[in-house]
């Protein structure tokens, strides 16, 4: 399943709902929770930060490999080149007083999905996440 959303300003939940309604998604509630949270974090990042004023497009797709049962979710945008995986990770051992507010989104994706990768290709940011699922 693939769809390009344009414009994307204030469209986070529509894009997330589109992806979660994909027939490639698992039925298992706990798996869906992890996938949805990861999708929400990366979609929100693009919607809020990729384009100045939120004017631009975001193409999203899902693919389920029927042999390996690996679900792939891909996001592609033509916004400011940005590799979210280069963000420094939060120090989760700090006290509440010393913890920084924020920076948790991509960290959560890394922990909840099996893999997350980024490439810059033909002027596009391409973010790919995978998760082994069972149906």
């Amino acid at each position: 399943m693939k769809r390009r959303f344009n414009p994307i300003k204030d469209k986070s939940s529509e894009i997330i709902n589109y992806l979660m309604a994909s027939p490639d998604m698992p039925d298992d509630e706990a798996l869906r929770f992890k996938i949805q949270l990861s999708i929400e974090e990366v979609v929100d990042n693009v919607v809020h930060y990729a384009y100045e004023g939120g004017i631009g497009w975001l193409e999203v797709s899902t693919h389920l490999d029927s042999n390996s049962l690996i679900l792939t979710v891909e996001l592609r945008d033509a916004g400011v080149p940005f590799n979210p995986l280069e963000q420094s990770e939060p120090d989760i051992t700090l006290s509440a007083e010393n913890r920084e507010v924020g920076g948790l989104g991509i960290f959560l994706c890394k922990k909840l999905m099996d893999s997350i990768s980024y490439r810059y290709e033909n002027g596009n940011n391409v973010l790919t996440m995978t998760k082994l699922i069972w149906k």
Binding site: L37, P90, I92, T93, L94, A96, R99, F107, L108, L112
Partner: peptide, 10 residues
């Protein structure tokens, strides 16, 4: 989610 992010400790 609270566990993964260390929030359960604080």
């Amino acid at each position: 989610v609270f566990d993964i992010t260390g929030f359960s400790n604080i």
